[in-house]
């Protein structure tokens, strides 16, 4: 075991993992974090906590993850390289370990242009791959990036993101290989809507044997309305939604119900793809639908490991 996190145990034992995600509040309410987490707790093996997602300031991922630890939830702390340099990231990682956080997802982060502080300076001292390398060195060699010794262990299950829907497509699998080489233990992908493209990507992943070197969790975003489907298709870079799905959402008498139907169908199709080891459900601002999706997809109860 690298970290002993619940997520690591579930994956190591060969279960099809389920992770979910919460966006901390744009405020100070620990109750908000607790209520959202309480709702999701029974239907996932670990819970991601976003780090100023879409560059909008929210309660820190570290603090929200600490609250989850008090509830015996296994958090996946997201960390973007946009807002912190190597000093701040390393000190936050030490603090995270001290608070019982065992999974960390390394991200570059959305550009600040998209958020509520577009005039901010971005940092990017490291990129996401270099962040993985840094954590791996901290964990496996007990050393800071500077080479100084760390007192105590740094048991972290290292996560990274992959986007099979961004360009250049042929490079996406090679970039995944770089992320594994840098230290990635698990991967959470961008949301999958386009099954043929994801299937093709997974084929390329298997051709390189990468599915045996890393646990791949396919991303899923439940669609709440036709408007949301159209918006994501048009404005979110690196997301591909087939027209057919947008049409289905637009034509449905109950869009939310259709969104759940589509989510369950996608899970079923994703589970059939060899090499996929779990699903990562990102229902930010629609967390309450997650238990229903997980139940209908017959992924309950979650294993106790």
């Amino acid at each position: 075991m690298k970290s002993g996190s619940n997520l690591e145990k579930v994956l190591t034992e060969g279960h099809f993992a389920v992770t979910s995600e919460m966006g901390p509040p744009k405020g100070t309410s620990a109750d908000f974090v607790r209520k959202t987490a309480e709702h999701l707790k029974h239907c996932c093996d670990a819970m991601n906590v976003t780090d100023n997602q879409t560059a909008i300031v929210r309660m820190s991922s570290l603090a929200a993850c600490a609250i989850l630890r008090q509830m015996d939830i296994d958090p996946v702390m997201q960390m973007v390289t946009r807002d912190r340099n190597r000093l701040a990231m390393q000190s936050d990682i030490l603090g995270a370990v001290a608070l019982g956080i065992r999974n960390l997802l390394c991200l570059t982060g959305d550009h600040q242009k998209f958020g509520n502080h577009p005039t901010a300076k971005n940092v990017h001292d490291l990129d996401s791959i270099q962040l993985e390398q840094m954590i791996k060195t901290m964990r496996d060699e007990g050393l800071f990036m500077s080479g100084d010794k760390i007192s105590g262990d740094v048991p972290i299950f290292i996560g990274a993101a992959a986007n099979p829907f961004a360009d250049p497509f042929e490079f996406r699998v090679l970039r995944l290989a770089k992320k594994i080489k840098a230290g990635g233990d698990f991967i959470q992908t961008q949301a999958v809507f386009d099954i043929p493209r994801f299937t093709k990507w997974m084929e390329m992943v298997r051709d390189q044997g990468l599915h045996e070197q890393v646990y791949i969790l396919a991303g899923l975003i439940p669609m709440k309305s036709a408007g949301m489907a159209r918006y994501m298709k048009k404005y979110v870079a690196g997301l591909m939604i087939p027209d057919e799905l947008v049409k289905r959402m637009a034509g449905a008498s109950d869009a939310k119900e259709e969104g759940v139907n589509i989510a369950c169908e996608l899970i079923e199709q994703i589970r059939d793809i060899p090499g996929v080891r779990g699903i990562h459900i990102m229902a930010v601002a629609w967390e309450k639908i997650v238990p229903e999706i997980v139940e209908r997809a017959q992924l309950l109860p979650r294993p106790i490991v």
Partner: peptide, 15 residues
């Protein structure tokens, strides 16, 4: 835009 050393990031689309 992010001065990445190991790009491209997931926001690269159609060049």
């Amino acid at each position: 835009a992010k001065s990445l050393m190991n790009g491209p990031c997931g926001g690269s689309q159609d060049g």
